[in-house]
Design a protein around this nucleic acid. Structure first.
Length: 463
RNA sequence: GGUCCCAUCGUCUAACGGUUAGGACAGAUGGUUUUCAAUCAUCUAAUCGGGGUUCGAUUCCCCGUGGGACCGCCA
């Protein structure tokens, strides 16, 4: 049997990483089973659907490495088909026209609320043969849900879910304006696309009981369902579009690598033994629905950072540089082409102090900036003795044609004994002069990464 | 409120009904170091509560408690 998955977001807001994880799980499963992964844009809410969100969704997925098969499906293009199905359901007696006004429904709800009883649509028009149809009233079409008995859904993650049919109301499938609702459109499209596995957030669980009835009425094959637990914000509730750090871009802009976030999202709610680091291939091979937990998980920034640190330290340095270059272009000041070589040479030690691309960028400032400004706190550390030491260093340094670590060590050591000081006595003022701060890379790394004239300039200025 | 779901260190999670309840992140301490990091070593830290079933329960069942989701002519 073909293995067909889909991710079906609505473009009514930016995709957050909960959605990205749902997409990832779908995609992984499709890849693992050599099946298909489709993207369906559910844009039937005309008011709120925006082209920019559709773009953001596709960009987010592609950033993390998820590519959908074929062209994306646009749900609104299929509306006629959805309407046809509604008509068919109507004809076959599985649906009916309901002339209740929105006012009327609203009143019923309020009444129920006041009485403290749960609201279910009263099925007024379900078998209304003798009721007079109000003039000028446009009907909605409601699905005739089962009234008695129980329905069990075998969910691939949640196990068996059993509910009483009576709590599923006669839901609307066609609105007053004739447009199809989500319950109808999603079901019809899943059928048309021959979706075999519907993997979606836990919040869709109840919908399954509605949609299953449509499948049954139409005598369509029912796909497998898997409802994965939601991701919670630090506050402990469902991730929403308003949460900080919830979209892909929130992570991109602080310099998180796609692989790191992919790895993080993979392990959020899923595990394979004790394994923490998964290459892309490993995640495709090892991922399965059995390993998905049932309880929601909380977002943990420090873990994302730690994973990112791991990937920063382990990916190829050329690739890392490309990431950095891109990152600076997009979010900071683009790296001056004349400085690129210096960064490339230094990235091996710059990355060691970094958890993010932003960290690397910040660590590179002493190379990228034209002017070094020494922080007020550090300028105090440059006393007359230190100044003397660094100018003596410069004098010796300028005599060397091609500086190496060894030759630099020689100078430093002689200064240490001459001034009866320790390494710090020489290294600290040098670092302050060269970097503008007492924090920074190893002093030999700094000196070897900078052009000679630049060193001369900075030390003379500071001493 | 109704319905459904869930429950292991602070967090993410592992553990055929038999383990000293494991790993990772975070935290703490110490070593190393040239500052900050990094790194190495060590440590702290959990089976929500109560009943069963069983020789034996984190695991199975029931009841509480806590948390979450849903309850739209949104998706």
């Amino acid at each position: 049997m073909a293995f067909i998955c889909r991710f079906a977001p609505s473009p009514t807001g930016p995709l957050h990483i909960g959605g990205v994880r749902t997409a990832l799980f779908n995609w992984l499963l499709a890849k693992k089973n050599k099946g298909k992964f489709y993207l369906r844009i559910e844009d039937t809410d005309k008011e709120r659907s925006k082209e920019e969100f559709k773009k953001q969704i596709i960009e987010s997925l592609s950033w993390i490495g998820i590519k959908h098969d074929d062209k994306e499906f646009i749900q609104s293009k299929n509306i006629n088909k959805h309407k046809e199905v509604a008509e068919e359901l109507l004809k076959k007696g599985f649906a009916y026209k309901c002339y209740c006004s929105e006012e009327e429904i609203k009143k019923q709800k309020e009444k129920c609320k006041n009485q403290g009883i749960p609201y279910v649509y009263n099925r007024k028009w379900r078998d209304a043969k003798d009721v007079a149809i109000p003039k000028d009233a446009k009907p909605v079409i409601r699905f005739k849900s089962k009234i008695s008995g129980n329905t069990i859904i075998k969910d691939l993650v949640q196990g068996e879910i059993n509910i009483s049919n009576s709590i599923i109301e006669d839901f609307v499938i066609l609105r007053q304006d004739g447009s199809p609702t989500y319950q109808l459109s999603a079901t019809v499209d899943d059928h048309i696309m021959k979706v075999s596995h519907v993997i979606r957030g836990d919040d869709h669980k109840i919908n399954t009981f509605k949609q299953k009835q449509i499948y049954e009425s139409m005598k369509w094959n029912i796909p497998h369902f898997a409802h994965i637990p939601l991701i919670h914000s630090e506050k402990g509730s469902k991730l929403s579009k308003r949460d900080k750090s919830s979209t892909i871009n929130d992570y991109v802009k602080i310099g998180i690598l796609p692989d790191a976030l992919r790895n993080y999202l993979l392990r959020l709610g899923w595990a394979y033994k004790d394994k923490e680091i998964f290459t892309l291939n490993e995640s495709i091979q090892l991922f399965d629905l059995k390993g998905v937990g049932k309880s929601p998980s909380k977002l943990d920034m420090s873990r994302i950072l730690s994973l990112n640190e791991h990937y920063i330290k382990n990916i190829d340095e050329k690739i890392l540089f490309e990431f950095l270059k891109n990152y600076s272009q997009k979010f900071k000041k683009a790296i001056d082409p004349s400085k690129e070589d210096m960064i490339v040479k230094s990235i091996s030690f710059l990355k060691n102090k970094a958890k993010t691309l932003e960290d690397i960028y910040n660590n590179s400032q002493y190379i990228l900036k034209e002017e070094i400004t020494i922080t007020p706190e550090d300028i105090k550390l440059l006393d007359s003795n230190s100044k003397k030491i660094i100018s003596e260093f410069l004098e010796e340094f300028m005599k060397i044609k091609l500086p190496t670590k060894e030759s630099l060590e020689k100078i430093v050591n002689s200064l240490i004994s001459k001034h009866k000081t320790n390494f710090k006595g020489v290294g600290q003022p040098l670092r302050i002069a060269l970097v503008g701060s007492r924090f920074g890379p190893g002093i030999y790394n700094i000196i070897l990464s900078l052009p000679k004239n630049e060193i001369e300039k900075r030390i003379s200025k500071a001493s």
